[in-house]
Structure formats: C-alpha cells, structure tokens
Write a protein that binds this DNA or RNA. Structure first.
Length: 758
DNA sequence: CCGTTACAAGCATGTGCAGC
DNA sequence: GCTGCACATGCTTGTAACGG
C-alpha cells in the first residue's frame, strides 16, 4: 500500500480544485483600510521596523465564512480519524475554534461569533451529511478490581517472557498502585506532556511516610506504616495553585505499596535520619508516655525535589513511558484492548460510587465541575442489576459490574509477538516497501541519479532508514491484524472444539513457584507475596527480597542470554519460512535476471559499477508539488521550533496546533488558487519565508497570515493598489521634506528579522 | 469558550546479535 | 571487523477528548 499525503487523500476522495474554487468565488475579499497608509503619519508609522504589530494580515485576507467552510470540508475529506474513516465532528469543531482563537490573538480578529455560528451550522447541516462525519465517542474500558489483581500478579509471577529492569518493575508496580488508590491523573504522578520540571511530578516532598502507634495498647498491637501521597499537580490547578489532595496508602495482602515505597526510599538513600536498612525501621516505636502517636520520616534536603519515578539514567518518568509500560503489559497478558492510564481512573472512580458522597468523590477526583463525573467517567454499561432488585432475588451485581472492564476481552493465548513465519510474505506484499527496496538497489547500482541536495551515499542511507521504518510499520500492522483475527475467531473455535469434546485448555501457565529464566531473586519476592499477609504493618522480609531483586548483579547477563535466545528463534523461524516459500525463490531468480539487465539499460553516465554520480543541473529538478513542499516545510519547522524552545519554556501545544491549522488552510486548493499564477521564484521565496518565519514564533502566525493574504489577493486588487500607490508616490514628491519614499508592500524576505511583510 | 490533557500512531535513533 | 536486522526507546504529530 502506497502512502499518500493528506492532499492526495483529499483528491482521491473527490475534493477537486474546481470544487474549492466554486466555494470561494462568490465571496469577494475585503480590503482593510488601515493596512494601506493614506496619510503622512501613517507612512511614518509604517516605516518603523520596530512596530511589528502593524504587519498583520494584509488587505483582502479577512477570513471569510466560505474559507472556513472550505477548510472544514478539506479537513473532513482528507483526515482519517481514530473512530471512523473520517475525523470526528468533535475534532473538526475543535480545529475551527482553535483557529478562531489564534486569529483573534494574532490576526485582525476578522472572524466574528456570527461567522463561527454559521460555519458550525453549515458543518452540521451540510458537511456532516455529505462526508459522513462520525459522531461516536470512543469506548472506555475500565480496570476493575479483578483486572487490578491480575495485573499485580502477572507482573510479579508470570511475566517471564519479557526483559524489564528490576527497578523498573518495582517502580511500575508502585506506580499502578499509587494511580489506583489516589485516583490521580497520570500527569499528577509523572511528568505530563511537554513538562520538564521535576516538581511537576510526584516528588519526595509530597510523600509523607509515618510510623503510627495503634490507638490501644495491648496484644498484637504493632506499630504500622502509612504512606500519605499528596497530589499537587491537578489538571488546571498545578502546584502552588492552591488545590491539593492527600490520600493514604497502606499494606495489605498482595497489595503492598508501603513496602515497595520503602524499598525505593532505601535505594535512594532518602531518609534524613540515620536509617540504613529495613531492620532499623523495625526497631522504632513512638514513645507513648510523651503522648507521641507517630513519627514522620523526613527526607534529605537534596532529595526533596526529586521525583520518585526516575529511569536508570536519571531522567524522570513521563506519561509516554508509563503509558507504554502499561500498554505492553496488557498485550503480554492477552488483553484485546489497550490498557491505558485513564482506564485505572475510570475503573476506581466507578467503584467508589456507592461508598462515598458525590462531594467527596468530586474532591478526590479534583473536579471543580459538578457534572464532570457523570459526563466523562460514569460507565455507560450500567452496573446495576435491575432485574434482581425488582424481583428481590439474589443479585449478581458483581458480575454485571465486571462487564465494564477489560477482562471480558481477554485471552492469555492471544499472540504477543508476530508469527515470524508470515513475516517475509508480509514484506513482499507491501508495495511501498518494495518500491523503497527497488530504489535502494538502483541507487546502489547507480541506475538513478541522486537528488540535487544529497550525495549518493547520503541518499542510500536515507532510503535505508526509510526501509527500516517501513518494516517496523509492517511488523506492527501484522501483529495488530493477527491479534484482531485471533480475538474475532477464538470464541467460535473454542465452542466448536468443546462441542466435539476436545480439550481447549492443554497448557498451564506457570503460576506460583516455577523457576523462571530470571533466577531465584524474583521468586523470593513471589514467595513473600504468597504468604497471605493480614497485618497492617509492612513486611521487612518482603522489603529485603525486593532489595535483593533490584540489586541483582547478574541480571544484565541473564537479559543478554535471554535476548540472544529470542533472536536465534526468530531468525530460525524466518529462515525456515523462506526455505519453504516457493514464491520467494522464484522472485529471487527474477530479481537476479532483472538486475543483470538493468546495468545496461540506464543512462550512460550512470552505468557500470563505480561510476561517479554527476550532480544534475538546476533545470533538471522538476518543480515539486507545492502541497508536498508546504507539508515538508511545515514538518521540519515545527520540529525545529519545538526543539529550540522546549528547553526554555513550555511550548503551548494548542498554539502550535493553531499554526498548523493556518498551514493546512494554505495547503487547500481553494486558498492557494493563485499558486499556479505566481512565478517559480516567488514560490521558492514563499517557502523560504515560511521556514524563516517559523524560527521566531511570535511572528509565526502573522507571517503565515501575511503570506496567506498575498496568495489570497486577487489581481484586480493588486493592480488597483499599485495604481493608487503610483498616484501617492507622485503626490509624495510634491510634499516638502519627505522622510521616506513609499513603496509597494510585496512579499519580501527579511532574513535578519525572520519575518516577511506585505 | 477556549485552555489542557490523554490516547494513538508515526518516525528516528540506539543497541546488540548473527552471519559473513 | 563490517553489515543488516529486529527491537527497545524516545520523541513528535494528529485526533479526541477532558475540564475550568
């Protein structure tokens, strides 16, 4: 399957230049008078380069109703959504409103409320029908108690088929517990999107570890540890904005967050007091005769601002990392749908429904808004057994409640890795990959010219990278397809097998006690977890086992050995598949023949091994499709912009998106109808100007807006303006003491300023 | 209304292994 | 020792929400 640009997809789906033109023709662009200077004072003002605010949109660029409709249509036709074949209505509205707000901030503010209303009406009444825009919401799967226990057990007991650093495993286990039992959003516990500051995640200063003396003295009343987790980075109410919540975690049964936390704290050497081992902690007891009820463990000053969740290289966890850990775990466990971070929040918030008041729930979830829970969190699969309630029979509410969870769509037999025997065929059937491999082959044999800007070697390297990426893409898609296929057919298969009297459970998964490839250390941890733990205190032996596990010096060797085995198996499987593959063999001989003949077919200067590549002249290069070029410029500049400013301050994601929206508007046929009429030089200038202007974000939307205006201007207007200006110039010469000669404002690049003007 | 965040997919790079 | 490969990992874009 060849990959297409968005514009190409739009064309494929029937969006033509004529259609775009017909949409825009009936609307005449307006001229904004204040841009065109009419008095001496205005000229003086305009002549000052230090007043960039005057360079806004040029005349004629006011964004009209039909432009917005045009954009919405192009977007709907060219975008592929997550839910349906097209982007959802929600997304289209979101782009429109973002565009409007950006235009209000940085442009002339020409989009009025009335226009927006009219556009929305048009989108819902016309566009939605013609483009079949989906309005569904995506399905939300919850993590209920059942899955939660599965996850905890699997992570420690069964997950032998995967390389995960011991510390990461411990942290991940703790992370899942903290997210579940504090109901925190992922962004409150680890770094959220585009945040770099350590304090934007859960740090040691937010953790309150206490040793508590029980209320009554007596037999069996041991001291116990509690872990208070203070969440101070709620959405919209981040640190020092006032809103915070604290929840308390404790050890019980298989769920032992406090012990896991203590292991990490000991590993970080975080205790301010002279605590070196878990045995030191066990010796402590608050003196009751001073009416002392608890000890609070203080942290060393240097770790106060340190996030609890850090990678081994010292960087902090972010949501992407945590998300991926959870998702991959879900795949290994055999869940059909992605385990996501929010599914924990959805699940736990639904389970507390009956146990607490609505106000309290709102507080825990850090919602200001009263309707938020019912709008976005409450399960649509209603977990109430109405039938039993009404007939007063025994309720099966738990079973009904569990239907909201992932576990209804789970099978541990589901494929976790691709079937390598099918891989060669999948590669061969991918047209784009074949195309790339042909290109590489030809480049290597000097059968085609390298492009103007790249050397031959560089281009071969580029193609090789593309091939690698495409292969990865093919592998991912293959796994997705194989998994979907498995889940679609497995139930019927099982049922049929059982009807025939066959056994569908021949394999037992190794649970509890089997010695795995990772050696005995994790088994020790598992052994401690097997002891059903009823007390409230943390378990020192469990902590010791964890410590031993995360400090295992032989781990990396084991990981290497494991990886080697896996690789050998893969290669063996692929080899066997290739050997059996007749089609492949015949293709190979064909390729050989073709390769031999190709050498004599090409251009004279390129034939033969070792021929040097001649740089083609400038005239050889075809003028690229502007849509692609704009797209490429847009990609590279956004990347630059982000990398440049990311380290300094948080980039406003939304602002970036708005800029993209501008560019998309430019890329639509309707807006750039003048593109074919302007000279090639001007096109190049325009592209360069775009690139330059992106280096200075404050000018960004102005610059793009200005270019949009220029492209959008009709010739008649330009001519009129030119005439008027000539007259003014003539009049200007008659004035006494003129300061500066007026000039026609045209598209011009100012490299030093990084902005071009109208 | 509009700012903020999550979820999904894609792309680029680093790493370690096997085969030559 | 070099090269190709698969995979882990990290980061970005694009879509679809959530939320004050």
């Amino acid at each position: 399957m060849t990959r297409l640009t968005r514009a190409e997809i739009a064309i494929q789906r029937g969006f033509t230049r004529d259609l775009a033109r017909s949409k825009t023709q009936h609307e005449v662009p307006k001229v904004i008078s204040r841009i065109e200077p009419t008095t001496v004072e205005q000229y003086n003002e305009f002549a000052r380069p230090e007043k960039p605010q005057d360079y806004g949109f040029g005349p004629g660029e006011s964004i009209s109703y039909s432009d917005l409709c045009n954009f919405a249509e192009w977007y709907a036709r060219s975008s592929i959504g997550l839910i349906g074949e097209h982007s959802s209505l929600n997304t289209i509205f979101s782009h429109l409103t973002h565009f409007k707000s950006e235009e209000n901030r940085s442009g002339n503010g020409t989009i009025t409320r009335e226009t927006m209303k009219a556009v929305k009406v048009w989108v819902t009444s016309e566009l939605q029908k013609t483009c079949e825009i989906p309005t569904d919401t995506r399905e939300k799967w919850h993590i209920n108690a059942l899955e939660f226990c599965c996850i905890t057990k699997f992570l420690w007991l069964e997950d032998n088929d995967y390389v995960m650093e011991p510390v990461t495993r411990l942290q991940f286990s703790l992370f899942v517990m903290i997210s579940a039992f504090t109901l925190g959003r992922p962004g409150t516990i680890v770094l959220s999107n585009q945040r770099q500051d350590a304090l934007q995640s859960l740090c040691y200063q937010d953790l309150d570890l206490r040793l508590i003396l029980p209320e009554h003295e007596g037999e069996g009343s041991e001291c116990f540890f509690l872990l208070g987790v203070k969440l101070r980075n709620h959405k919209g109410q981040r640190r020092d904005n006032g809103l915070w919540t604290e929840l308390v975690l404790h050890d019980s049964d298989i769920v032992r967050p406090v012990s896991q936390f203590i292991t990490l704290a000991l590993q970080d050497n975080a205790f301010e007091a002279n605590i070196k081992s878990v045995d030191d902690l066990c010796r402590l007891k608050p003196p009751r005769h001073f009416r002392k009820r608890s000890y609070r463990f203080r942290w060393k000053k240097e770790v106060l601002d340190t996030p609890l969740f850090r990678k081994t290289d010292g960087t902090f966890w972010n949501v992407h990392f945590a998300e991926r850990l959870l998702r991959d775990l879900g795949v290994r466990m055999g869940f059909r749908y992605n385990l996501t971070l929010y599914s924990i929040r959805y699940g736990v918030s639904n389970s507390i429904e009956a146990a607490t008041t609505a106000d309290r729930r709102r507080q825990i979830m850090a919602h200001i808004d009263k309707e938020r829970y019912s709008m976005s969190y409450m399960s649509k699969r209603i977990p109430v057994d109405l039938q039993s309630l009404f007939t007063k029979s025994a309720s099966i509410e738990l079973e009904i409640f569990n239907r909201t969870g992932h576990c209804e769509h789970m099978d541990s037999r589901a494929p976790k890795k691709i079937d390598y025997a099918t891989l060669p065929k999948a590669y061969r059937e991918d047209e784009f990959l074949q195309e790339l491999e042909n290109t590489r082959r030809k480049l290597e044999r000097c059968l085609i010219r390298p492009t103007e800007s790249d050397t031959l070697m560089a281009q071969v390297a580029t193609v090789a990278k593309k091939i690698q990426n495409r292969r990865q893409w093919v592998r991912r898609r293959l796994l997705r397809d194989q998994r979907n296929n498995f889940f679609d057919t497995i139930d019927t298969k099982d049922i049929n097998a059982q009807i025939l009297g066959q056994d569908v459970q021949p394999q037992e998964n190794p649970v509890f006690g089997e010695i795995n490839v990772w050696g005995l250390n994790r088994n020790d941890v598992v052994e401690r977890m097997k002891l059903n733990f009823s007390g409230r205190s943390m378990d020192p032996d469990y902590v010791k086992a964890l410590q031993k596990y995360i400090c295992d010096p032989t781990w990396s060797e084991k990981a290497k050995a494991y990886n080697s085995t896996v690789r050998k198996e893969q290669l063996g499987s692929i080899k066997r598949a290739l050997k059996d593959d007749e089609e492949h063999l015949s293709n190979r001989s064909k390729r050989r023949k073709r390769a031999n003949s190709e050498i004599f077919e090409g251009d004279d200067s390129y034939t033969g091994a070792g021929a040097t590549a001649v740089q083609p002249t400038r005239d050889d290069t075809p003028i690229p499709d502007f849509r692609q070029e704009v797209g490429n410029a847009f990609r590279s500049i956004t990347g630059k912009l982000l990398s440049k400013y990311m380290s300094k301050y948080t980039i406003d994601h939304h602002k970036t998106m708005a800029c993209q929206t501008y560019l998309k508007i430019i890329a639509t046929d309707g807006v750039s109808k003048r593109w074919d009429q302007i000279s090639e030089n001007l096109r190049r200038q325009a592209i360069t100007a775009l690139t330059l202007s992106f280096e200075e974000p404050s000018y960004l939307s102005r610059a793009v807006g200005g270019w949009l205006a220029e492209v959008f201007l009709q010739d008649a207007h330009t001519n009129e303006r030119r005439k008027a200006l000539e007259q003014k110039k003539a009049a200007w010469k008659n004035l006494s003491n003129p300061r500066k000669e007026p000039r026609l404002r045209t598209l011009a690049i100012r490299p030093g300023e990084g902005v071009f003007r109208i």
